[in-house]
Amino acid sequence: MSLEPVETSDARPRVGRRVAIIAGVSALVAAGLLGMLVTVSSGDNRFAVDLAWAELMVSLRTPFGEWFAYLMNAVGGGVIGVFIVPIGAAIVLLVVRRPWGALYFIVASAASAGAVQVLKHFFARARPEDMIVVSDFGSFPSGHVANAATIAVVVGVIVPRTWVWVLGAVYTLLMAFSRTYLGAHWLTDTLGGALAGAGVALLLWAALAVPLERERVAWRGRGRAALT
């Protein structure tokens, strides 16, 4: 997926946003549909994959594994995940003169968190019984995974490199694994979180595509000039 600039007569980039809009809307719709399915399949009718995965995670628990999962829990949520990470990232982007990137990071983080809370209270899914970490109300979708997916997309947009997208995907998968490892979420909760977080980030990408692309091109030009 790319938003390629096209020079127009007034020298402003025209950015293709259709793919981002379609992908973002599709991801949010898929998250909503999945939420409906897991609500219907509550109680004794839970998804077999959720039950099997939860049993596997309990069987794999070790002191080191729990330490890693608790670390991901702290990084992906609470004060660190909700405030320190987005604000810190925005400050860095402002320092390197990418204010639109900073705005995108902050707005996407806040919008993703808001969307997750709406879905949590709408579906009100119970968390697994083997949870070993304190969490808020509602199991679907995973806020930690939504936050990870949002960051992955936002950073991928700001620094459009293949390795950045790969690292973002790995980070999101590790976050999903850690949430189920701690018993804080069902496997389908993490999928819903990834869809919600990515969907919000993609739609905001489309909304801010022109200034983001203009800023990226200018920033790249300054970097090349510094090397000459």
Rank of each mutant, 00 (worst) to 15 (best):
223 G>S: 08
193 G>I: 15
99 P>N: 00
140 F>I: 10
201 A>C: 09
144 H>P: 10
218 A>R: 00
43 G>P: 11
218 A>M: 03
108 A>E: 04
155 V>H: 05
23 A>S: 13
198 A>M: 12
228 T>S: 02
155 V>D: 00
83 F>K: 11
49 V>F: 15
47 F>W: 15
78 G>F: 07
212 L>V: 02
221 G>I: 01
206 A>T: 06
142 S>G: 13
57 M>F: 06
108 A>V: 15
197 G>W: 10
40 V>H: 14
13 P>Y: 07
101 G>S: 04
152 A>H: 03
170 V>I: 08
129 E>P: 02
122 F>W: 15
215 E>G: 00
52 A>S: 06
40 V>M: 15
121 H>Y: 14
62 T>N: 02
60 L>M: 00
146 A>W: 14
135 S>W: 10
31 A>N: 13
42 S>P: 12
27 A>N: 08
221 G>D: 00
46 R>W: 13
186 W>N: 06
11 A>R: 07
220 R>I: 03
28 L>E: 10
190 T>A: 10
15 V>N: 01
215 E>T: 03
154 V>W: 09
174 L>Y: 09
223 G>W: 11
223 G>C: 07
12 R>Q: 15
6 V>G: 01
86 P>F: 03
38 V>K: 08
109 S>G: 07
211 P>D: 09
64 F>C: 01
100 W>R: 00
221 G>A: 13
179 R>V: 09
132 I>C: 02
172 T>E: 09
96 V>H: 01
223 G>V: 04
176 A>R: 11
219 W>C: 00
191 L>V: 15
154 V>H: 06
65 G>V: 10
14 R>D: 05
151 I>D: 02
100 W>C: 01
149 A>Q: 14
103 L>A: 03
84 I>D: 07
60 L>P: 00
2 S>A: 06
81 G>P: 11
153 V>C: 09
224 R>W: 08
104 Y>D: 04
79 V>C: 05
111 A>D: 02
10 D>G: 11
164 V>N: 09
186 W>G: 12
124 A>V: 12
69 A>N: 04
205 W>N: 08
32 G>M: 14
210 V>Y: 01
74 A>E: 08
147 N>Q: 08
133 V>I: 06
175 M>R: 05
25 V>G: 00
72 M>E: 11
80 I>H: 06
77 G>L: 10
155 V>N: 06
126 A>V: 02
35 G>S: 10
121 H>L: 14
206 A>S: 10
100 W>I: 05
41 S>N: 15
27 A>Y: 14
8 T>M: 11
21 I>C: 03
191 L>A: 12
195 L>V: 15
38 V>A: 12
162 T>G: 07
71 L>Q: 11
14 R>L: 14
218 A>N: 00
82 V>M: 09
152 A>E: 04
56 L>M: 02
113 A>F: 11
12 R>G: 10
203 L>N: 05
51 L>R: 15
186 W>K: 14
125 R>D: 02
34 L>T: 12
91 I>Q: 03
150 T>C: 15
109 S>F: 09
102 A>E: 06
48 A>R: 03
183 G>P: 00
25 V>N: 04
95 V>D: 03
90 A>Q: 01
182 L>A: 01
107 V>H: 02
129 E>A: 09
142 S>Y: 13
34 L>Y: 13
77 G>V: 08
